[in-house]
Design a protein around this nucleic acid. Sequence first.
RNA 1: GCUUCCAUAGCUUAACGGAUAAAGUACUGGUCUUCGGAACCAGUGAUGGGGGUUCGAUUCCUCCUGGGAGCACCA
Length: 564
Amino acid sequence: MIKDEILKNLQTVLKKLNISDVEVALEKPANSDFGDYSTSVALKLIKQLKKNPLLIAEEIKKNFPKTDFIQKIDVIKPGFVNFWISNVQSINRLTEIIENKFIYPEYHLGKNKKLMVEFAHPNTHKLFHIGHLRNISTGEALVRIFEAVGNKVIRGNYEGDVGIHIAKCLFGIKDSKTDIKKLKTLQKKIEFIGKMYSAGTKAYEDDEKAKQEIIKINRMIYDKNPEIMTLWTETRQWSLEYFEENYKRFYSHFDKLYFESEMHQRGLEISKEILKKGILEKSQGAIVFNGKKYGLDTRVFINSLGFPTYEGKELALAEKEFSDFGELDKIIHTVTPEQTSFFKVTFKVEELIDEKKYKNKQYHLAYEWVKLKAGKMSSREGNIIEANWLVDEVKKKIIEKSKCDEETAEILAVASVKYSFLKNGTQTIIHFDIDESIAVDGNSAPYLIYTYVRCQSVLRKAINYLVDGRGIDNIILNKDELNILRLINQFPEIVQQAGIQLSPNLIANYLYDLAQKYNYFYQKNKILESEKTTKQFRLMLTQATGKVIKEGLYLLGIKTVEKM
RNA sequence: GCUUCCAUAGCUUAACGGAUAAAGUACUGGUCUUCGGAACCAGUGAUGGGGGUUCGAUUCCUCCUGGGAGCACCA
């Protein structure tokens, strides 16, 4: 990496000037007039050296070793030192990318180079809504990014298949006396359990007798009572098939599905074991973790009826996740922020159980909600936006707008929706409005894909033209070309940053920037009708832009099309 | 009450402590007899308030105001 080279040289220079104890960082200046990389180290040294920062910067410049990858070094205003990468170096990188060599700097979370991203976690008997879609988009992107920077990544998914919400649904079914054998298509089945869940929820609130019955059903599910198991197993299976369809539609899959129903027994055992060890304690008939001594909340692990809570079951889950795939560096839990307290507590308890095994090995990535502008999404009020429904709506919008074929529209629709989530930071609450939120103009997936398609179209017309970087080292680049070249060179570092910061949106923003710069360049400069060497170089830029867009979108879990 | 997250242009969002705070959208006006107009250009418009740290603060600390979320037997 060129960046590392510059840093290394900078350190050497500082050592030579007898300066230590200062943080050296390289930045990518937002304004391209300030070079490819920039350092403010001279400014940071003002106090230590009691000198004019411009003089310090000049010293650094003077002592910086002559290398072939630096074209020039500038010292600017308060005391920035700006580095300009040589064209030869940049064009080499361009050639690599054209040959499909994406070389990313490595980033690991531990010596095993192996981690699990746990995401999706829908609950059976419920709809897969746009919140799940944001989750799956984020999780899948993180998986691909971590793979790119040199990790083995396991996709984990913890699905809730027990609990009161399911009892409500099953009560609804029993109460409706529907013959479920008559439901033939998966679509019908899913719609049916959705309705039954609403009915059960309503009954739970309005009818005390129904409420007691639901509580009984809930217990029967935990006890694996055969009387309810047939219905539970059947309807659960519907949900699982429905989820699989969703995963497939959104280009994801899982190495391992964990189920809450499987964690019940072991969760109980572990909780009881650690009660003896004094990690948990009895309180008002329940078994709890007293978080006060650690500045955490107190939370229940076994309730007063003797059932493990979500917390209790989490202990069993952690045990399984950390043993199923050998030693992991980290498990990243992609879960909404309301669970922050829950994770702080369970992480602490796990650490107390086995410090070596669990301490600092888990991270709660608190990605935010998708909220409706009109109000909160809640199944009780029946204003849940189903992921499939939304994508279908966007698909219609796309077909109406462009008259493209079904297959293309599907890819563009999925791309639009996923991208509209991913371009935001994970911590941003998305205020969703069906008419405005899924953009197909501006900063949107179709814009990026359009740019990709445009690149491909130009390349198709450039027949009989070998794209090769050799022999054009001395070309003088205009500003438009330089902007693109520079961005393309930055791509691997951006991907690494996205991993370090757990922020797929860095890649999204980068791609948008690249597409904008390319379109601007395209508008102002002729490609196919320019002079030979220029033409060759511009075709290289075009090809590399296309490849980077495609690769970047791949890392975001988004497909491209060749024509649209 | 305690904990935690958030506050940037009319709206939706960007910005590793750095240089002129960046886009989309909306609005106004323009470009092209096209290598794909789902394009490009120009204009209008923003860091909630007060202190502090720093050569430098949207970013870090503190207080205030206003929102979201969590705080024992739900998941």
